[in-house]
Amino acid sequence: MKPILELEKVLVRFGGLVAVSAVDFHVGEGELVGLIGPNGAGKTTLFNVITGVYTPTEGAIRFDGQAVDGLPASEITSKGIARTFQNIRLFSSLSVLDNVVAAFNLHLKSGFLGALWRGRQFREQEREVRDEALQLLDVFGLKSAAHQPCRSLAYGDQRRLEIVRALATKPRLLLLDEPAAGMNPTEKVELMRLIRFTQERFGPAVLLVEHDMKVVMGICQRIAVLEYGRKIAEGTPSEIQQDRRVIAAYLGEEVVDA
């Protein structure tokens, strides 16, 4: 499988604190990879480095063979990486539909002048964007709420809207940061279905940070485990479940050197 995202010896330092240390990692095209680890292991920091919120102190990040580390976040998104946020960050004053519409920004042919002149190309584009956004919302069962303020959505729906919004950028790699957080068991099952469905329908590779083991083990093809900023294990769900270092990391046992 051709890797779409490659991390090479990535290290992130905040002052004296090393949040992510020499991580080598990759995600293949169309793959569904899980990233797990105890709290504070550096999972979200890794997401932030991949998406350009932070710049790695050392190491290289390549997307589709091109170096992307150090690029502004919006440019990284334009290359085809999209994400959701652990603590939901919707555009709170916009409607559900407008949240999705805003994410079409990358693919606009008609910009500043178009918006002022409102010619044929502009009008066609506006119609297309709106139709496409509504279609996306429809696919995820949010169409009926399209004109509501996004704040009025239920928590689970807000998480779903975050995924829809990320998909609107037409990503080839989708990063989901704890999408199951705060969901009840039924919602979690629905979420797993949704992630699989997203992959089948839109085809992006997915990198998933999640605490809920049922979700991670249930859908991921491959799992990487972080602890204290280091990658301590990587493998298929069944391999990870047997890995003593992983068990130790989660249960706090002494690691007996094998």
Binding site: A103, F104, L108, F112, G114, Q125, V129, R165
Partner: peptide, 26 residues
């Protein structure tokens, strides 16, 4: 006219959440 266009939603996105706006390619 600027604000009421797909292009112009970018302004509002920046206002609401800069980090999310960047992450959405704005």
């Amino acid at each position: 006219a600027l604000v009421r266009s797909t292009y112009g939603r970018g302004f509002l996105a920046v206002r609401d959440d800069e980090i999310a706006a960047e992450a959405m390619g704005v």
